[in-house]
Amino acid sequence: MTQLPSHTDKKLGLAIDLDTCVGCQACVTACKGWNDQSHGLSDQDPYGAEPSGAFLNRVHSYQVEPEAGAAQIINFPRSCLHCEDAPCVPVCPTGASYKRVEDGIVLVNEDACIGCGLCAWACPYGARELDQAAGVMKKCTLCVDRIYNENLPEEDREPACVRTCPTGARHFGDFADPDSAVSRLVAARGGYDLMPDLKTRPTNKYLPPRKKDRPQEASVLAPLLDIKATGLAGWLDKVLGKI
């Protein structure tokens, strides 16, 4: 079971737009809420001094300083990338960790997990967190219990993080289909892989921030700033300038 499939029929995943993400953490909350209620995602000391818990999605915030121009703040959501060569799967001793042939989603069978943590060690992206109460590994399921769920209205059949994002920074779709919205988005915007050297071949892609406008050399207010004093002030200006 922990042998990776050579081919998956679909490649479901996310395209995350770093240009439009405002770092509001709504996807973090929606993910936590949905997954905690569906199969449990525990917290430890949630209202105490050192609150801690398992999350399947985290939003970082980075400062990026270009060679020229002002520094930028870029918000960076981080969750499982559902890699084609997922390093977390073959290391699993029990077969709990697997990649689905039908849609490429990487899942954990909690009934078989021993909580050894080796899959979390093998993942370069920090996508897996051990649930301290359940003692088993948790990870993004791409909301597998939403996307195929016919009890939900059709507009809700997408991952909770995508559904909740107020700026539309998260896009869900099939990357195996070159004509899908996510595939076209990635092609148009130059979507890229994280740490491609590690050859994990992530399904999720990140869309880079768009080029910022360069501040013009001269201010558009320049004509208004060149103030000529007149009258008494003008005479004073002339006299004082000569002293």
């Binding site: 770093l18 970082h60 980075y62 990026v64 300083e65 270009p66 060679e67 520094a71 930028q72 870029i74 960076f76 370069p124 992206y125 890229y192 892989d193 994280l194 740490m195 990140y206 880079p208 921030p209």
Partner: peptide, 8 residues
């Protein structure tokens, strides 16, 4: 790790 190194 973030792919943002391409900017700065």
């Amino acid at each position: 790790a973030t792919g943002l190194g391409r900017i700065g």
